[in-house]
Write a protein that binds this DNA or RNA. Structure first.
Lengths: 188, 188
DNA sequence: TGCCCCTTCCTGAAAATTCAGTCAAGGGTT
DNA sequence: AACCCTTGACTGAATTTTCAGGAAGGGGCA
């Protein structure tokens, strides 16, 4: 599909990564996508529509690359590590996703309407992580796994924000996350 | 100081906590502070100036209330715990500070101008935390203390965002943080 | 004391800018 | 023709920013 609609969504993803959800200007988006602003309204109705569709687009893309980890990982511990470190990479795609996620989280503080989706996505992620922890440490209790998963994912969000806001070098963030996984696993 | 300049900064903190950095309108701020919009420009030059000074104001205020813990704590471990849990409380002041801090962190992703102050405030905080960890576990290495401090503070930021965005009940966030402190200390 | 000058703080009003959103119309395809 | 896609030219409303000037207070000085 080289259709313009998709081109607009891709461009929106880029603009959001550059300016944030709240910094997205319809005109800048049209320039980025190489179309007129009117076309954007034709396809998405209004600014909120752009945001909604783009967020769906991003979520879908994230789901895809998260899912494509090696299907039958041998070492569950390495699998866990890989799954989490996936979010701390300096590729356009990951950067775009992390940025959008951070924006979403920050926006939800002021816009209750966003909270439900956010909460759902978060618990899904936490559960998946708990699952991986369970595979790495079958003897731990489910409660302990759940709590550790919440800590690791929350930590990852915190590290990610520091990385994106230029407070923490990427490699250092990755190292800290590895250590945290280490500490948590030793604990279980 | 009942000077208007400070009144404006206090009001800005409140407005940011209510609307977010990007939601701050100079006019709403002037109403909140009970002054004319012109006065705000007189004191802060432009919107960016308001933001910059407010950031300083917030970090300073946070530093102050973080520092005013009991001077000669007997139990360093309890001291550490108290220091960190201080940021997870549902009082207007803490909520305001945490919200504003989260906003600033999120804004810094897109506005490099904010990064320097943010980074400085963050390292100060991390160092102070590492210091407390050192007192709780004198035998650990400075490097280990520093890394643990980075993890705990980043985790706290992550938990704080989840709390403020309605994803995580406050008490649960506090519990997770306590456990993390536990895990990290056991580790050192 | 009374007067002049200078600075600081502050305001109302208006100008300038920014932005989302609209509309009439054109080109291509079926 | 009927339909889909697309655009340039605009508009109205919201916001930021500028500006001319007023009130209040201090210092020097006749």
């Amino acid at each position: 599909m080289s259709d313009r609609r998709t081109a607009i969504l891709k461009a929106a993803t880029r603009v959001i990564a550059r300016r944030g959800v709240r910094g997205l200007r319809v005109e800048e988006l049209s320039a980025e996508a190489g179309v007129s602003t009117s076309l954007i309204y034709y396809h998405f109705t209004d600014r909120a529509g752009i945001l909604r569709r783009t967020l769906e687009f991003i979520t879908e893309r994230a789901r895809r690359y998260t899912a494509e980890r090696d299907p039958d990982a041998v070492d569950p511990r390495a699998d866990l590590e890989q799954a989490l470190l996936l979010e701390l990479q300096d590729t356009p795609e990951v950067r775009e996703n992390s940025t959008a996620w951070g924006e979403l989280r920050a926006s939800a503080v002021f816009e209750p309407g966003l909270r439900e989706d956010l909460a759902k996505a978060t618990t899904t992620w936490v559960h998946a992580t708990a699952e991986l922890l369970g595979r790495a440490r079958p003897l731990g209790t489910a409660t302990a796994h759940a709590a550790a998963a919440e800590r690791l994912t929350a930590l990852l969000e915190g590290l990610s924000m520091r990385w994106l806001s230029g407070t923490l070098p990427l490699e250092h963030a990755r190292e800290l996350l590895r250590q945290a996984i280490d500490v948590e696993l030793r604990q279980l």
